[in-house]
């Protein structure tokens, strides 16, 4: 059972109050009309799926219903950082990965 800090409620809650939306920092294409099938496919379906540090969006689904970002290790499950949607990812050397 993960214990997750909600930056809006400012408290640590059990995992079952939250919903993991998926990988974070995937930017919606700016000009969808001009996008190739290749690029659409990449945007919609392809994910980094790393073994190790993973940045993901979580929602406090049965709490305040706000979305926020979590930096979590997918191997140890340690939550290294929690930051709001509009905040810069902390300690990130390569924001594209």
């Amino acid at each position: 059972m993960l214990r997750i800090y909600c930056p809006y409620c400012e408290s640590v809650r059990d995992e079952d109050e939250f919903h993991c939306v998926g990988e974070a920092h995937i930017k919606r294409p700016e000009r969808p009309d001009e996008l190739s099938d290749q690029a659409w496919g990449e945007y919609l379906h392809f994910r980094t799926n790393p073994r190790g540090e993973h940045r993901e969006i979580w929602q406090h689904a049965v709490g305040c219903r706000q979305h926020f970002n979590v930096l979590r290790d997918t191997e140890s499950y340690e939550i290294k950082s929690v930051y709001r949607i509009n905040e810069e990812p902390p300690n990130v050397t390569d924001p594209d990965t």
Partner: peptide
């Protein structure tokens, strides 16, 4: 489950989550 990790060795990304 390790397909994403192995694909990354060849510089590829897959539409998969583990």
């Amino acid at each position: 489950g390790n397909s994403g990790v192995v694909a990354a060795l060849a510089g590829l990304k897959l539409p998969i989550e583990s």
